[in-house]
Design a protein around this nucleic acid. Structure first.
Length: 245
DNA sequence: GCGACAG
DNA sequence: ATCTTGTCGC
């Protein structure tokens, strides 16, 4: 499917059409901020048509993204860390500091974090095989969480790994690797995945250009002895270190 | 009306 | 998201 012709006065980016800002992600956006909650929801529903499913091959370069926030200053710091899964080395880091211009509203997290995050990602020099987001993808009330949003705007493979459930789910078994489905109207839109035996599971869902089996396999690969993916941990550490330090 | 609600 | 250290257990 192609981007819709902009006959209206939409200032929103057309997926996959932006060029020149970054060699890696080829996307630019100065101020991606809908005017209110209804407009934000409409934007999610507009972009949802561009989301695609694709088999995800075992990735070598994986980029974890995360955003830290300081309520006092209303300052955001976004970080992205690319890890070479074959060596466990960090091969690239980018960060960006910004100001919160959209409130945190459950279901609309992307509008708060994406502007700063996209600016950080524009500095990436190497395109990874997969982006791992700190939040949901398809396991979202409108089936368009942060991982879908980021994936579609940049037209890159992306998955969501959240620390909390989007809605009540069954619990997986206690062993690492055990899963339970995240169901929405009978369809499996994500998976509760136990990444460490007897430790609270994570919530995995596809964002864009990935499949759930491949997503879960990648997450298990990235969680050797930790609950959260190594990519997420490094991005989190980097963003909060910059926020404070 | 009230509470819950990815980060 | 953030406020916050050590501590118990595998």
């Amino acid at each position: 499917m192609r981007a819709p012709s902009s006959g209206t006065a939409s200032t929103f980016p057309q997926p996959g059409t932006e060029r020149g800002y970054s060699r890696a992600v080829q996307f630019s956006v100065k101020d991606y901020r809908p005017d209110g909650e209804d407009a934000a929801i409409a934007e999610q529903e507009r972009l949802r048509a561009f989301r695609r499913d694709e088999p995800l091959a075992p990735p070598r370069l994986v980029t974890g993204v995360d955003v830290s926030y300081d309520p006092a200053s209303e300052r955001l710091v976004a970080a992205a860390v690319t890890v070479d899964v074959s060596t466990w080395d960090t091969v690239e880091e980018v960060t960006r500091s910004g100001t919160a211009r959209f409130p945190y509203i459950p279901g609309l997290l992307a509008f708060r974090e994406l502007p700063t995050l996209l600016e950080a990602l524009a500095d990436l020099e190497t395109a990874p095989d997969l982006f791992v987001c700190d939040g949901h993808g398809l396991a979202h009330p409108r089936a368009f969480g942060l991982a879908c949003h980021l994936g579609v705007l940049l037209d890159v493979p992306a998955i969501g790994v959240a620390k909390n459930a989007p809605w009540p789910t069954d619990a997986p078994g206690e062993e690492r690797g055990d899963t339970a489905p995240i169901l929405h109207e009978g369809a499996e839109v994500g998976r509760v995945l136990r990444t460490r035996t007897s430790v609270k599971p994570v919530y995995v869902s596809v964002g864009h250009r990935a499949d759930l089996d491949g997503a879960c396999a990648a997450v298990l690969e990235l969680t050797r002895g930790t609950r959260l993916p190594e990519t997420t941990r490094r991005a989190d550490a980097l963003s909060r270190r910059l926020l404070k330090g």
